[in-house]
């Protein structure tokens, strides 16, 4: 028997079965959020520490909300990227917070592999809330949960992802997650922001389930799910593409594509959105966009992650 995974570090190391466990547990737990008093005592007495070395609103609040619905205590540590090299090392910070009594760490870090590095040295579970340009596994799980809810299946779908695929941790996790569940992934965007041909074989889990495309219209034509990614202005957007106006013109999703988009398809975005760059602001009013459903499912899936890692539970019995 394989060793029990005691961290959530990336989608790459999860099996289809493990992904299903998270999704089932998430679906199961979501109901709690609709109760008059959305709180259960399951994780009472557990201390969850947010280690956010990068700014985050959605992900951090989402994990915090999830922890509090389950009655865990939370503490937040925030550090600007620049203090990493000057002050205490990441490893020392983690060891100290363990001594204070942390039962689980949620880590967001600008450097790829930082959660993996901590996991090698830590005694408690580690949740990767986004590491550099590597992965963002909880985002992929909430995307899956949303698709399952909206389309009723996770297999045999065509998922199109548009944008900075090369530097997007969301894309990296999504590409693997959708294929593991039996769907195909097509990625498109400006060519310098797509995976290098030498990297392609890593993303292709089976022969016909992953494709890099250079024509936006063709790529969105038969898609069941369209995911637009955020152009990361603060990181490299500016240097790698000539202008945001040009990006919008050639790679932004606009109402004019509505004729070619398949009926019943859904539009997703991991947020935060740059309206007018990745998406036309007019798209907000169309019901095929499920962006806020994603955010809501984020809380449910993160409850599942915390519960599974802290208790080992794969199901949740509603007893009160």
């Amino acid at each position: 028997m394989a060793l029990k995974q005691n961290h959530l570090l990336d989608i790459a190391s999860l099996s289809k079965e493990e992904i299903k466990e998270y999704l089932n547990l998430g679906l199961n737990l979501k109901e709690i959020l609709y109760r008059p008093i959305p709180k259960v005592p399951t994780l009472r007495g557990k201390l969850i520490i947010h280690l956010f070395y990068e700014p985050s609103t959605r992900t951090r609040f989402s994990f915090d909300r999830a922890a509090k619905v389950l009655s865990a205590d939370t503490l937040a540590f925030t550090a600007k990227g620049s203090s990493i090299e000057k002050g205490e090392t990441l490893l020392d910070t983690v060891k100290n917070l363990e001594a204070i009594g942390a039962d689980l760490f949620i880590i967001r870090h600008p450097l790829a592999g930082a959660p993996h590095f901590i996991a090698k040295h830590s005694k408690v579970p580690i949740v990767n809330a986004g590491d550099g340009t590597h992965e963002h596994p909880s985002q992929a799980l909430l995307d899956l949960l949303t698709i399952k809810e909206k389309l009723g299946t996770l297999s045999d779908l065509k998922v199109t992802i548009i944008g900075d695929i090369k530097h997007s941790r969301v894309a990296h996790s999504d590409i693997l997650a959708f294929q593991k569940m039996g769907s195909s992934v097509y990625v498109t965007g400006p060519a310098p922001l797509l995976p290098d041909p030498k990297e392609e074989s890593y993303f292709r889990l089976s022969e016909k389930t992953f494709k890099i495309c250079y024509n936006l219209r063709k790529t969105i034509k038969d898609a069941d799910v369209i995911i637009a990614l955020r152009i990361q202005k603060e990181r490299h957007g500016k240097a790698l593409i000539p202008s945001f106006q040009e990006y919008y013109e050639f790679f932004g999703l606009k109402p004019q594509y509505l004729d070619i988009i398949k009926p019943g398809a859904i539009l997703m975005h991991p947020g935060p959105i740059n309206w007018g760059i990745e998406l036309s602001p007019e798209l907000e009013k169309y019901p095929f966009q499920v962006i806020l459903d994603q955010v809501e499912n984020g809380v449910a899936i993160r409850m599942a992650i915390l519960l599974k890692l802290l208790t080992g539970e794969k199901t949740y019995e509603v007893t009160y």
């Binding site: 790459a12 790829a112 592999g113 590491d131 340009t133 290098d196 030498k198 890593y202």
Partner: peptide
């Protein structure tokens, strides 16, 4: 190296 491990680890590759 730029290749499957730079993709896997999310690290920038040296071509």
């Amino acid at each position: 190296n730029e290749g499957i491990y730079s993709a896997k680890l999310g690290l920038k590759g040296k071509p």
